[in-house]
């Protein structure tokens, strides 16, 4: 009975959407806003990756909110699991030598790859979120491979906080010193398509990379410890 009602409900929603989609042809030309970003994005922000310039400059405030949401998830998860009583120490079976050596070998390489992704966020596909996720995957590998190791929680928290503050302070500098707008790109744009270009974008993306990496690591750490 419940299934039939659900299907009827979904069918009604489906009809409405089909009706609406006739006005949104697939693969049609770009919209006004999107066109503006592609035409002017390079001069106005200095980034060759237009998605990055949208994420960090035109819609940078969304990204601040996004970073906040990830922070919120890490804190909320900690708050939910904090009052959980532990069932005593978990039995850890040590990993084999091959696994351990492999993890130790791969760990710095994955970190390097993550750092490459977020440093080149304004030039190539990728950016702070993707790079941060890759860095967190390196820590996950250590958790799974070298099982007795633990991350330093205090250092993790400090990294997280400082990276978040860097984002906000960059925005506030833009408000006070350069241009009277929050998050305005006050630094020199530099030569396009080089590493040192596009003003505050790389700095913020590096901060986001650190923040996302430490937050996801914190989430992994909490879930590993408490479950």
């Amino acid at each position: 009975m419940k299934k039939i009602i659900s299907l009827i409900l979904l069918f009604i929603i489906c009809l409405g959407i089909v009706f609406c989609l006739q006005d949104i042809p697939f693969g049609a030309a770009k919209t006004k806003v999107g066109h503006y970003y592609i035409d002017n994005g390079r001069e106005e922000t200095g980034a060759t990756n237009i998605v990055t310039s949208v994420v960090l400059n035109y819609r940078g405030f969304d990204t601040l909110g996004e970073v906040t949401i990830l922070f919120l998830a890490a804190i909320g998860l900690g708050a939910v699991l904090a009052t959980l009583k532990k069932k005593g120490k978990r039995q850890i079976e040590p990993a084999s030598l091959i696994l351990k050596t492999g993890c130790r070998f791969l760990f710095p390489l994955i970190l390097l790859f993550g750092a490459y992704i977020f440093i080149h966020g304004h030039l190539t596909p990728g950016g702070g979120f993707q790079g941060g996720a890759i860095i967190a995957s390196a820590f996950l590998l250590v958790y799974l491979g070298c099982r007795e190791r633990k991350i330093n929680e205090v250092a993790n928290k400090i990294t997280e906080s400082i990276a978040g503050l860097v984002f906000i302070v960059m925005g506030l500098i833009g408000l006070t010193v350069g241009g009277h707008y929050f998050l305005s790109n006050f630094m020199p744009k530099g030569e396009i398509n080089t590493l040192f270009s596009s003003g505050i974008i790389p700095i913020i993306y590096i901060a986001i990379g650190f923040k996302v990496g430490s937050e996801l690591t914190g989430i992994i750490d909490n879930l590993m410890e408490k479950s």
């Binding site: 999107g34 310039s53 819609r59 950016g127």
Partner: peptide, 17 residues
């Protein structure tokens, strides 16, 4: 269009949270 890509980046992070 770059805008939906930027939106999806945000939306993925919210989904993860």
């Amino acid at each position: 269009d770059p805008v939906p890509q930027a939106l999806v980046l945000t939306s993925i992070v919210i989904g993860v949270a």
